[in-house]
Design a protein around this nucleic acid. Structure first.
Lengths: 255, 255
DNA sequence: CCATCTTTGTGCACACGTTCACAAACACAT
DNA sequence: ATGTGTTTGTGAACGTGTGCACAAAGATGG
């Protein structure tokens, strides 16, 4: 489950405060989830709790770490040492959880040779050698979108089977390779979406009454858009609107 | 829906190539989703397609942009100008989608006054003024985890109602405030989890036979862990194991 | 040793998202 | 106009995840 890291974080915090045991209710609150959900998650890993008492913090930390595969260390290559690559190389949360930065790679000669987080930035050409020599199975892509697929292919070809992609592109990979995507602008867009909803759903500047009209009217509007030749020209659509519904499309496509 | 930004990206790519219309099948492939899912998503926004032809790319771009609230621009404050804050300030994906960085804030006097992405880093004390003056409703937190909740409270108090949190902490906010979390180390942990599964599920170094034993044996093991006094001491547990099951807990808690 | 209280583990129902499959709708050729 | 081919929009089945609620299990106190 994707919630295990959350539990692990809450548990390590408790562990540092030397809390011996914790109830599902407390831990659920700390992790921000439902207590029943948490218990079900743990029962899926096996019954590690004691009724009437709760869960042994230290023991649970270890069990989850083992389940997540954090008892071994994972070499990771970061490809694309721009702003984000730099940030990730310096990110403390990696080393503390069993992830080791095996190498930083970049294609730009101006960047190659510099150091980030105490590690030298090496050239893309060394990718295959590094992956093979250090048995790297996880790659992080922080390149511009145009280079992402190409980098991805090389990583996979070299033997990487898990990829964390920060580039705003849909990567295609063969079966058996996992890809997780982190898209910063998508997160903001989702927030903007909810923000707009909160703002009272007032019709925006470009809103059209057609959009809320029943089926036939919308269909007519669609037809008109096509009639206007692919890229709908508002002037042509206006006035032709079926059934005389007031349909102003003039703001539909901003210039 | 959280998939709208995905569609939007694929559609803008098509738009730049001047593709007039696109079928649900093609677009679904480009966005990496199921075509039926995509059609259902679009039908939820209204019927913007034409049977036998597909969807008008330009029109759909606008409709989704409007739905996501990207037709207006959203001022955003970034709090915590460390490595990640720097990277975000320079991230090009924001400006191009209607997000405007209203201010960069930090508490460290050594950082305040420097510039990032052409913007001056200002002191946290100005937070309330900036949020109020520019009507900022979205805040991005890239502080260390210890400061995150405090910063969050100040943002909310000042009027921010959407927060994008990069700090590894569970933020508690009043109703009406949205929080989205991006946790870099969690993403890697999830990859490591799958990676371990792929590696054949061989028992790890610290694996215990007790973990796969049926109920009664696990219960006994749990009892022993408690008997050992909170933090299970393997030596005490060993030998006491009920029913004589071979139970080596010596590797359960690494020193 | 028994009663009571706490907390886990889980059966069950429900809600949600996903996918299939197909009819209605439209374009286009004849 | 009529037929054929294509694509949307959606009803319905399916699977999955979620949360309630409760019994079983253990702790605790008398």
């Amino acid at each position: 489950m994707a919630r295990l890291p959350l539990y692990l974080r809450a548990l390590t915090a408790l562990s540092e405060r030397s809390v011996p045991t914790v109830s599902s209710e407390e831990l659920a609150a700390a992790a921000g989830v439902n207590s029943a959900k948490l218990r079900k998650d743990f029962s899926y890993l096996g019954s590690y709790g004691t009724r009437g008492v709760g869960y042994d913090v230290e023991y649970l930390v270890y069990q989850i770490s083992r389940e997540l595969g954090l008892t071994q260390d994972w070499p990771v290559v970061i490809v694309g040492i721009g702003n984000l690559g730099h940030a990730l190389a310096n990110y403390g949360g990696f080393a503390s959880r069993g992830f080791r930065v095996a190498a930083l790679l970049d294609a730009d000669p101006a960047v190659v040779g510099s150091t980030a987080a105490g590690l030298p930035v090496r050239h893309m050409d060394e990718l295959e050698d590094i992956v093979t020599a250090q048995q790297v199975s996880i790659g992080v892509i922080t390149t511009p979108p145009g280079a992402a697929q190409q980098v991805c292919d090389r990583l996979v070809e070299a033997g990487v089977t898990s990829i964390l992609n920060f580039a705003p592109t849909v990567l295609t990979v063969p079966d058996g390779v996992d890809v997780r995507k982190v898209d910063l602008s998508i997160e903001l867009q989702i927030l903007a979406f909810h923000e707009q909803r909160k703002a009272g759903d007032e019709p925006g500047a470009g809103d059209s009454v057609l959009d809320r009209a029943p089926g036939p009217v919308r269909a007519a509007a669609a037809k008109l858009r096509r009639a206007a030749g692919g890229t709908a020209k508002a002037e042509q659509a206006k006035g032709k609107t079926a059934q005389g519904t007031e349909g102003d499309l003039s703001a539909v496509m901003p210039a």
